[in-house]
């Protein structure tokens, strides 16, 4: 899994996630996002177009961050989910608690 910063201004940051977000790699996501939160970012948009796989460990990491930024009046939103990742969001009901957008442009409107 790789997480790359795409752009950043004031309280908002856009990043791209690629590869597999599983029990082995999910802590990398939490660590990186917590670093950005500590730097004052609270609104995150994540491009998931290159994210091939997510398990409950990945959802757990997203939920931890979404709750954290929610508590700071910020938000975590995801864009461009692949079909298999979208399915995992639907089964878990995460599509109802984390805003999902078809494209990165839609998310940034």
């Amino acid at each position: 899994m790789e997480i790359k910063e795409l752009k950043c201004n004031a309280e908002s940051l856009t990043a791209a996630l690629s590869g597999r977000m599983d029990a082995l790699t999910a802590p990398e996501f939490t660590d990186q996002l917590e670093k950005w939160i500590a730097e004052g970012r609270i609104n995150f948009t994540i491009d998931c177009s290159q994210l091939d796989y997510i398990s409950s460990a990945g959802l757990r990491a997203l939920l931890i961050i979404a709750k954290k930024v929610g508590g700071l009046n910020g938000k975590l939103q995801l864009a461009a989910l692949q079909e298999s990742v979208q399915t995992v969001f639907e089964i878990s009901g995460f599509n109802k608690i984390i805003p999902l957008f078809a494209t990165l442009d839609d998310a940034e409107k």
Partner: peptide, 18 residues
């Protein structure tokens, strides 16, 4: 509970559901 809102959602329990 798949209907719980963001702040109420417990962390964990999804793996076995999958």
């Amino acid at each position: 509970d798949l209907e719980a809102g963001l702040m109420e959602r417990p962390i964990g329990g999804l793996g076995i559901y999958f």
